[in-house]
């Protein structure tokens, strides 16, 4: 399980309520309290590919200008070889 703390930079006209609702109902995300134009979000990914897919999904949501990562815990993540 990979647990990441994300920081969403929101557009000026971001549909905040809709975005927060969409994140709240998504099983992989837990939104925090919006601070100005920034929204902290916890993301949990269950397998190797999912974290990147989720990252792309959240970046594509209306109102999201940019996604930065603040924290990640991967102590139960498997390793790979090429």
């Amino acid at each position: 399980m990979l647990t990441a703390g994300l920081l969403l930079s929101l557009n000026q006209n971001a549909p905040i309520a809709e975005l927060t609702f969409r994140l709240a109902e998504h099983p992989a995300f837990s939104p925090g309290s919006k601070q100005g134009m920034w929204l902290p979000v916890v993301m949990e990914a269950s397998d190797d590919a999912e974290s990147r897919e989720l990252h792309d999904w959240i970046a594509a949501q209306p109102g999201v200008a940019f996604v930065d990562v603040v924290h990640v815990n991967f102590d139960e993540t498997p390793t790979a070889s090429t």
Binding site: M1, T3, A4, G5, L6, L7, S30, G32, S33, K34, Q35, G36, M37, W38, L39, P40, V41, V42, M43, E44, D68, V70, H71, V72, N73
Partner: peptide, 21 residues
């Protein structure tokens, strides 16, 4: 353990969001 990791991630992200705001 899972709840702990979630809390740590949210705390860190909220601190940066707050600072930016």
């Amino acid at each position: 353990r899972r709840e702990f990791n979630r809390l740590a991630a949210l705390t860190a992200a909220t601190a940066v969001a707050n600072a930016r705001a």
